[in-house]
């Protein structure tokens, strides 16, 4: 029997597996649409959130203890990172802080490190959970990424309005040169640019943030699933089948390594874009 005939069935099973289901019933009829049902993605999102919280509370407590000891004994060497885990978290936080200062500016940047750090570590840990067998990443469901994008959207719109005032922020959507034109050009061209920029700022930005994260992770999970299905379907079909199965297994391992890279890069892209959007809101009056 031709194993490719079974492939559509396996792919349908895979898509069902990746859809939003009740967390305790993987064989439910179809995707959940009710907001009151606890779904697998919500459960894994909470697991990721708790992991990040525990990681940071443990590290912060150790650092506080070290600072107290160093202050009591006057020995500066007691401030060195205690062990690999603390060193890793410190390096991660430093990475986010340097990025915030680089993008937003030395004066305003450090204020947004908590928000950006939360985005980065939560998305990264959640993506890594998504690569575990039966694990789910918050980025694998469009609802999860829309929620993250909404938080980012609220942050940069709020910063824009509170730093520049409503008039100053909306005025900054029109370039300086157009604002100094004669009235006819100012109204026609300015109005047109305002419309375009308004759509780009307030609609396209959150939409692309959400869809980018979702599309990258969902596509990655589907690819891993299809290669796994190849390995399983071809294994029992003679010498040629075993060869196809082996090649698929090699590709599966390579793609898995690539997905680990994607998990990091998508968390980084989401964070740096949020930083760029906040920067454009903070310095709206200058352009």
């Amino acid at each position: 029997m031709n194993p490719l005939e079974l492939l559509p069935e396996k792919i349908a099973e895979l898509v069902h597996e990746l859809s939003v289901l009740p967390y305790n019933d993987m064989h439910a009829e179809g995707p959940v649409t009710s907001p009151t049902v606890l779904t697998n993605y919500v459960v894994w999102g909470i697991v990721a959130l708790v992991t990040v919280m525990v990681m940071f509370i443990v590290v912060a407590n150790r650092e506080k203890k070290q600072m107290r000891l160093a202050a009591e004994s006057g020995d500066v060497t007691a401030l060195a990172p205690a062990g690999r885990f603390v060193g890793m978290i410190e390096a991660g936080v430093e990475f986010i802080r340097d990025m915030a200062i680089d993008v937003i500016g030395a004066k305003e940047g450090p204020k947004y490190v908590p928000l950006l750090g939360t985005f980065f570590f939560f998305i990264l840990v959640s993506n890594v959970y998504g690569l575990l067998p039966a694990g789910k990443s918050i980025g694998g469901a469009i609802g999860g990424t829309v929620a993250l994008a909404l938080v980012s959207w609220l942050a940069f719109v709020w910063v824009g309005f509170s730093k520049n005032g409503a008039y100053g922020y909306l005025k900054s959507l029109i370039p300086e040169g157009v604002r100094q034109m004669p009235p006819a050009g100012r109204i026609v061209l300015g109005g047109f640019i305002f419309l375009l920029e308004f759509i780009s700022y307030f609609l396209v930005r959150p939409l692309t943030l959400a869809v980018r994260l979702f599309a990258n992770l969902y596509a990655g999970h589907i690819i891993l699933g299809v290669f796994s299905a190849f390995v399983a379907l071809f294994i029992g079909t003679g010498v040629g089948g075993i060869a196809v199965s082996g090649i698929s297994l090699v590709f599966l391992v390579l793609m898995y390594a690539f997905e680990v890279f994607v998990a990091f890069i998508q968390a980084y892209v989401f964070t740096i874009l949020t930083a760029v959007y906040i920067q454009s809101s903070v310095h709206a009056a200058e352009h």
Binding site: V103, V204, L207, T208, V211, L273
Partner: peptide
Amino acid sequence: AGRIQSTMFIAIAFTEALALLGFV
């Protein structure tokens, strides 16, 4: 390299937005 890399990611993100609109 560091500055160029972060600017590159920003530029890629804006370019990628068009493909994402097609995806939607």
